[in-house]
Design a protein around this nucleic acid. Structure first.
Lengths: 147, 147
DNA sequence: TATAAAATTATATTGATTATAAAATTATAA
DNA sequence: TTATAATTTTATAATCAATATAATTTTATA
């Protein structure tokens, strides 16, 4: 799991506005807030989870906006899909190469640091995307299970 | 990509009948044929592709049977899901640890040999499943593209 | 301020998968 | 072999996340 204690940078709305602009995405309150949630909370949420989270603060938001925005972010390549779920999309605004582990107990998705990966037989192939996804139980759920 | 020239064993229907039986699965013509297609053809098909393939030989088969059977095979852990597709399940009857590459040109899914994978930060976690999935272009599609 | 362009909403649609109930098949015991 | 129960298969309906569409609202800019 990625170390959390080295205090990840928190993005301000201004940071995000600049970042979206650099990627040819016009800003709006919803777009800023959706990206802010993805980049600062890092829970790898589904579209539905983002919608529910933002609805508290912005009650007028509609699910369509969340879906549209996420699709736009994917097209512009500022978010990536997390494949731990079969029936739902999960999103990650961190683009560096890392893996994911979904805890089947609590449902949380953890980031994984990949120290080394060596594949063979890929000569002549061109690679665009790599996904490493695990399923298992986190230490807390394991402890809870064994009480 | 996995070497194909070392002639993978082809499973007979009797082999499969035994294998299903060992895993507490009663055999039927459909179950045998579905597993046979998965294990001998190794194209990592979707349920729909399996249905279309078998319908030629067994015209009475219904899609429900394919879905039911695949769900049963998953439960009994004799097939695994391939995560290269977001909207459709793909299935693999080869259970050894290997990755997959989906060619975005021709749609084929290739097996990958993983020489080495080292993750850190997983102390205290219990892992049940690992998936490594790439997207890219195969040599043939790259060549075709550059003509 | 007017006009065009873009974003958002509400709603309907899609499509793979799952659920359900009836019918067909298979297994087992008398 | 026959009767009965259990399982498998089929046909059909339901589910539900995601997408498409068209109307409305907001934003940009001349």
């Amino acid at each position: 799991m990625e170390k959390q204690d080295k205090k990840p940078k928190r993005w301000s709305l201004e940071d995000i506005r600049d970042y979206l602009s650099q990627h040819d995405i016009r800003s709006s309150v919803y777009r800023l807030k959706i990206f802010e949630y993805l980049i600062n909370d890092r829970t790898h949420p589904t579209a539905e989870e983002i919608y529910k989270h933002l609805k508290k603060e912005l009650p007028a938001i509609s699910p369509g906006t969340v879906y549209n925005t996420l699709r736009l972010f994917l097209e512009k390549k500022i978010v990536q899909l997390v494949n731990v779920e079969k029936n739902q999309f999960r999103f990650d605004a961190t683009l560096s190469w890392h893996g994911h582990l979904k805890c089947l107990g609590c449902g949380r998705v953890f980031d994984l640091h990949i120290e080394n990966l060596k594949l063979s037989g890929l000569e002549g192939f061109e690679i665009f995307e790599k996904h490493l996804d695990l399923k298992g139980l986190c230490p807390e759920c394991l402890k809870r299970k064994n009480i």
